[in-house]
Structures are given as C-alpha cells and as structure tokens.
C-alpha cells in the first residue's frame, strides 16, 4: 500500500505527513508525528482517551482516518498549555488531584475544554453526560467533575 501525503494544521502549526489510507488519525499522531498525548484505550471510540479537536469539534482520533484531515485544523493535548502557562483546566486538575494514573487525563482535558467553550456554565449533570465518553477507572469521576466546575468558574470570572 502506498502512502498518501496530507497537509493539515496541528496546534496551529502547518504539518505535513504521509500515511496509509486505513491509518487512523490516532496512529498518525502517535506513530508518525510523535504526539503521544492522545492515548489508545480501546481503538473503537468507547473510552475517549484519544480525544482531540478537529475543525472545532471534539472527536475520537481513533475514529478518524488520517487522510480525512487534509486541510483540517487539529488540536491535541500538546497544544493546550500556552508555553509554560497551563490552561486553567490543567492547573485545576493538578490542584484538586483530579487524576490518579493520568492515562485518561489528556482526553478528559480536551473534552472538558470543548464543553466549556460551548457551555461556560454547565450543571454537574451536563458535565457528567458530556464526559460520559471519557472512561476513567481510577477516580470515580468525583474530583474530575469538581475540577471542571472550579475551572469553569475561574474562566467565567477571567
């Protein structure tokens, strides 16, 4: 199988890569571009650990083909902090211990950011349903939900 050239924008940087037609965006990010922040927990869209933004929408990168991203804007966890300044969600997750093993954390942060951009003042129930596609096995979600709300309040005030 021959590879296909794809030109895209990742975290604001123009990026070109070659991939096979059947390669997922997740494989491209991890294996070809060295962006291993997105994790493969299932490869079938059931766990959310590979969450990234594509053209302003939250997607599982395991359910997107690399070739589909021609001309697209991709944002990953690696682009969430600006320089050495963490995004409020990242900082609050640390301050409030909203992670244990941390494997689901990149996906949850990307998903939570997408929610707050759409709905800056969600209820706990809205946060829980929005994040239902992001499995976490360590925390029982409690501290995650609280941290998203703390960050949301801070971002509304900012």
């Amino acid at each position: 199988m021959k590879t296909i050239p794809v030109a895209t924008t990742i975290n604001g940087d123009e990026t070109e890569f070659l991939c096979h037609a059947d390669e997922s965006l997740l494989d491209v990010l991890r294996d070809r571009l060295g962006l291993t922040g997105a994790k493969e927990g299932c490869g079938t869209g059931d766990c959310g650990a590979c969450s990234v933004m594509m053209n302003g929408r939250l997607v599982c990168s395991c359910l997107v083909l690399g070739v589909e991203t021609e001309g697209a804007e991709i944002e990953t966890i690696e682009g969430m902090a600006k320089g050495d300044t963490l995004h409020p969600l990242q900082r609050v997750f640390l301050e409030e211990a909203a992670l244990q093993c941390g494997i689901c954390t990149p996906g949850i942060l990307v998903a939570a950011k997408a929610l707050l951009e759409k709905n800056p003042d969600p209820t706990d129930t809205e946060v829980r349903y929005w994040l239902a596609g992001n499995l976490c096995r360590c925390t029982g979600y409690d501290k995650i939900i609280k941290a998203v709300q703390t960050a949301a309040a801070e971002m509304r005030g900012a």
């Binding site: 991890r30 962006l35 291993t36 922040g37 997105a38 994790k39 493969e40 990953t76 966890i77 690696e78 969430m80 902090a81 963490l86 990242q90 900082r91 997750f93 640390l94 301050e95 211990a97 992670l99 941390g102 494997i103 954390t105 990149p106 942060l109």
Partner: peptide, 17 residues
C-alpha cells in the same frame, strides 16, 4: 501538588506504548 502532575496534564508523561 504531585510531582508527576504537569507531565500528566500536558500529555508528556510516557506510558507503556
């Protein structure tokens, strides 16, 4: 704050794969 925290919220932490 945990010492491995920043790596884990920025995607830098290196897991098995």
């Amino acid at each position: 704050t945990r010492p491995d925290g920043v790596d884990k919220v920025t995607g830098k932490a290196a897991y098995g794969a």
